[in-house]
């Protein structure tokens, strides 16, 4: 079974995000880039499907500037068989529909039986691309999955997602799109062997022209990013505990209106 995993390269979770000189983007100097953690769950699940079935192929796909290859190499080091890179710097700030159209075109070329991706990327947090890709392809989609099991004949998948106090189980025909929630699995570390072997694996490079995607401009326009106002400093109420508590209650009631 061929499983395609859509991954996004995002700033490391420890990054102190600052608005850039162009207020529609963040300042990228000095940022460490990683594979979005939810996408790592998707890669891990794809590898487990291949291992469980004993055969198959795992293909990692991403779009964006040259540095996106680092993220794809991480997927190859984890164990993906090959990767596809849509080399187009314009994808960096593209709206989700544009991204979904490009990825859907890659999926049509590759014709996998299953597409996995994270429930959202941890940079823009839109959580839209998985569902949009499925819609463009006319495939079913289940988001935020916590478990999956593909039928032995490879025709359907049973996948579950957490809802308030229960697990909701669905049967979907393949091909379909599943998006991964935390808890689906524990992603493996790449091994040294995996890292050293990754450079021998193929990263196929596609240009925007290779996909025949007609892009009629973004459907969603980012106006600007604004930094959050700095948090007001904490306040220490001095005095004897008895009076201090009285003052605290007064402040919470009258000023903060919290009680």
């Amino acid at each position: 079974m061929k499983v395609l995993v859509l991954v996004k390269q995002v700033p490391d979770t420890a990054t102190q995000v600052k608005v850039g000189s162009d207020p529609r983007a963040i300042a990228t100097t000095g940022i460490t880039w990683i594979v979005s953690p939810y996408d790592e769950f998707a890669v891990e699940e794809a590898l487990r499907i291949r291992e469980k079935r004993g055969t198959g192929e795992v293909v990692a796909v991403s779009g964006g500037p040259e540095r996106v290859k680092e993220a794809l190499r991480s997927c190859l080091a984890m164990g993906a068989d090959r990767a596809v890179h849509v080399l187009d710097p314009a994808l960096e700030g593209a709206d989700t529909l544009t991204t979904a159209r490009v990825l859907a075109a890659v999926i049509q070329q590759e014709a996998p039986q299953l597409v996995l991706t994270g429930r959202q990327a941890i940079d823009d947090d839109t959580g839209a691309v998985g569902a949009q890709v499925a819609e463009l392809l006319g495939w079913p989609c289940l988001s935020w999955i916590m478990e999956e099991a593909i039928a032995e004949d490879g025709a359907t998948v049973r996948a579950g997602r957490q809802v308030e106090g229960a697990l909701e189980l669905f049967d979907l025909p393949l091909p379909c799109v599943l998006t991964a929630q935390k808890g689906l699995n524990e992603p493996r570390y790449p091994t040294l062997k995996g890292i050293m072997g990754a450079k021998k694996k193929e990263i196929k490079e596609l240009g925007p022209g290779d996909l025949g995607v007609n892009v009629d401009g973004p459907q969603l326009e980012l106006v600007r990013l604004e930094a959050l106002p700095p948090r007001p400093p904490g306040r220490i109420i001095p005095g004897e505990p008895k009076e201090a508590v009285r003052e605290l209650v007064r402040v919470l009631r009258e000023e903060a209106k919290a009680i």
């Binding site: 190499r73 790449p190 890292i195």
Partner: peptide, 14 residues
């Protein structure tokens, strides 16, 4: 190199 950086990342994360 790319590999050396990836090995450092692996060791760091572990």
């Amino acid at each position: 190199t790319d590999e050396q950086q990836m090995i450092r990342e692996l060791a760091r994360e572990f």
